[in-house]
């Protein structure tokens, strides 16, 4: 491969540059410990088991029963929020953070447009972002950031432990890579959108590369 510098040479070049646009050092770096935020967790979460999913839905799920689960977080109004949607709507769940200008800047607007398309079809779905940045994404910060994406979008935060549990349930990876020049975190994180029913059970996955029309079409096929 004449002219190809090779992966090692490329990595060495980039590693010497530093910053998000430069370094690969973070690929092997360990994420720093995240301090607990001490946010109020939900104290009363319904425990009654929801009815089983139709077999046609559940049987075809990749990792059937392995993705998703209960969580206890705090919404951007400071109220407790579990995996169950309070108004009985299906949910589009995404893991991201308020200051993310990478994949979130693609996925969240697509989710918002998907919500609009579903509404135009006469149905409702609740868009939700669970933060991977518990340090900065307080309820107040999320309350300021979420409406910019969609009036119905709800941001969920919580203690580092509660958020880690939610990430584990949905098998979402995240890693603090570094900071922008103005001190904002840069966090790599999984980017699938999860379609959940009103009880918080996984119906299907939506890759963020799908356009809103396709996301809406798939979502509607489950409603």
């Amino acid at each position: 491969m004449s002219g190809w510098p090779g992966r090692a040479a490329l990595a060495a070049l980039l590693a010497g540059l530093g910053g998000f646009g430069g370094g690969l050092w973070w690929l092997t770096a360990e994420a720093p410990d995240t301090p607990e935020m001490g946010l109020m967790a939900a104290s009363a979460v319904e425990t009654a088991a929801p009815p089983p999913l139709p077999e046609s839905v559940a049987a075809a799920l990749p990792f059937a029963g392995a993705i998703g689960g209960s969580f206890t977080l705090t919404d951007h109004f400071g109220d407790p929020r579990s995996e169950r949607e309070p108004e009985g709507r299906p949910q589009l769940l995404f893991f991201g953070y308020a200051t993310c200008d990478a994949i979130c800047s693609v996925a969240l607007p697509r989710m918002a447009e998907t919500v609009e398309l579903i509404e135009a079809a006469g149905r409702e779905v609740a868009p939700i972002m669970v933060t991977v940045d518990p340090v900065n994404d307080t309820p107040e910060a999320l309350r300021a950031a979420m409406p910019a994406h969609h009036p119905l979008m709800v941001g969920l935060t919580g203690s580092a432990a509660a958020l880690a549990a939610a990430q584990a349930a949905f098998q979402v990876d995240s890693e603090l890579l570094g900071e922008t020049p103005d001190g904002a975190p840069i966090i790599a994180h999984g980017s699938f959108v999860y379609l959940l029913d009103a009880d918080g059970r996984l119906l299907t996955l939506l890759p963020p590369i799908l356009g809103p029309e396709r996301m809406a079409e798939i979502t509607l096929s489950y409603l």
């Binding site: 973070w26 690929l27 990478a102 994949i103 990876d173 890579l177 790599a188 994180h189 999984g190 980017s191 699938f192 890759p207 963020p208 590369i209």
Partner: peptide
């Protein structure tokens, strides 16, 4: 960069 940022 894309894979590190979470792009599938």
């Amino acid at each position: 960069w894309c894979a590190a940022g979470g792009i599938p």
